[in-house]
Amino acid sequence: MSAFPPLPAELTIYAVTELRERWLAALDAAPPDGPVELDAAAVVEVDAAGLQLLVALSRRLGADGRALRLAAPSGRLREACAALGLAAMLDPADRPEEIPA
């Protein structure tokens, strides 16, 4: 299991700076391979800055050939991902079939 804390309720511009620090620390602490799974059930507020941070994390992991998975994303997070064409970010099992990206 990764050392990543669950996603906070507020995944927005107000939280991204702190979140980035925590994730960088978690990256150092995490096992160097295997997918990273974030518990995304608690997300209530999300904006593009928050999603961008997820994309950036995914990019960093992708460079190492690792995958980022969002487990049990909340409804709000799903919608936001779909709205920004980032549905692929969601765990494939959870991906709404009708949204291609």
């Binding site: 941070l53 994390l57 990019r59 920004l84 291609p100």
Partner: peptide, 27 residues
Amino acid sequence: PIPRIACDAGAVPPIDALDPETCHLGF
């Protein structure tokens, strides 16, 4: 309706190189 949207994820730097308050998003 927006039937299709793609985010240009390639423009977003990896998290270690990212200033999280700077926007890199393109669609």
